[in-house]
Design a protein around this nucleic acid. Sequence first.
DNA 1: CCCTGATTCGC
DNA 2: GCGAATCAGG
Length: 220
Amino acid sequence: MSWTDERIDQLRTMWEKGMTASQIADELGGVSRNAVIGKAHRLGLQSRPSPVKATETPRKKAAAPVKKPAPPPRQEPEARPAVQSAAPAPQRPAAAVSAEPAAPVVPQQPRIVSVGPGGFLRQGPGDQQAPIPPAPPRRLVPAKPSADIIGKTSLLDLTEKICKWPMGHPGEPDFHFCGEKVNPGFPYCVEHCGRAYQAQLPRGTRRPPPPLPFGGPRVR
DNA sequence: CCCTGATTCGC
DNA sequence: GCGAATCAGG
């Protein structure tokens, strides 16, 4: 698989929604978790809340990645001697202490949500925000056997005694199995055994190409 | 061991 | 640019 614009877009969306690389890889299909991560980084989508601790990365080979020598102290220790403890004045609950001169505490932007099948966002009991509609509005309906499959032998109907020769192509609405009584000892009925098992001819002898299984190449 | 993301490096 | 291999942490 290759990274088409569409797939890149899906990757972006899912990554930003907080789906794990594995989930994204599954959903996209044809790519590994590593591929997803690699692509995400190449795209510049980087390091969102990951379960991995943000410890230094002392790669054994390369030079140490830019380690911040000293994060610019937002407040000098000298500027605020221990006066505060001596001031019994009614203070705001400790939360505001560190962000005193600045604006009110910034509400943490990345809300952690989980993503359900179909791409909807699950909400916790405490969530008061209106439900976010699924990106692609899909209606989930109970699976119902399609009209042209009723009466046919489905995967669930297969037993030891039933011919398992596939009729049609998997994934198509009318895909089913032969369903005849099997040739005892074989997974297929007598007719399909004749198709499945070809006599071994001496080497070098030409023979007409055998009929392709699954009803031959798909025609659309 | 399972999972996670990050990084490297040969292709 | 891609992604397997590898690393490192939960």
